[in-house]
């Protein structure tokens, strides 16, 4: 009986090993199963979903106008102090003083892409862009000014 157990042990063991080898052998001969993405080469085909959160951008339209009122809701919503908004006072033609955005500073190096600022924005001025290649040689380059030079608030945004 000892011998029988001994031989069944060997048989079962060898069989399980051969089953494993059959599986790897299958993949060795079936190159179609390869799922590697050749990243820097496939930049063109790389389709990131529209919701992918890469960095915060301030939307500008063709007239170089944005929808940011400088209300600092995003600055308050941010858990990391990533956003800093500097406001100024615009003087309207009627002579009224009105608070407006001067500089929208965005510290990409502190950002964790949590999307809370986008959710908090009452005028949908900021969105998440799909760019994810953020590496730079100098940390200071990651501090960005989001409003383009000369841009101003779109008409009708309060």
């Amino acid at each position: 009986m000892f011998l029988k157990d001994y031989i069944t042990d060997i048989y079962k063991g060898v069989k399980s090993l051969l089953i494993g080898m059959r599986r790897t052998g299958y993949y060795f001969t079936h190159h179609k199963e390869i799922i590697t993405q050749q990243y820097p080469d496939n930049r063109e085909e790389l389709n990131l979903p529209t919701r992918f959160r890469g960095e915060v951008i301030l939307l500008h339209d063709e007239n170089n106008e944005h929808a940011c009122t400088g209300c600092t809701a995003c600055e308050l919503a941010c858990p990391n102090g990533t956003i800093k908004i500097i406001t100024k006072f615009d003087v309207s033609p009627e002579g009224k003083k009105k608070k407006a955005l001067d500089t929208f500073i965005y510290h990409l190096e502190l950002c964790t892409m949590c999307n809370l600022c986008v959710v908090a924005c009452p005028t949908d001025a900021i969105v998440m862009a799909q760019n994810f290649e953020h590496s730079v040689y100098d940390r200071s380059k990651l501090t960005k000014k989001l409003n383009k030079p000369g841009s101003k608030i779109r008409e009708g945004i309060e």
Partner: peptide
């Protein structure tokens, strides 16, 4: 996950009261 939540690992898809966005 990336398609619906916007990130692959640290999704932050939850908000108190529900989820941040509807399903894709």
């Amino acid at each position: 996950m990336e398609e619906t939540c916007g990130a692959r690992l640290t999704m932050n898809y939850m908000v108190p009261g529900g989820v941040m966005a509807d399903l894709h």
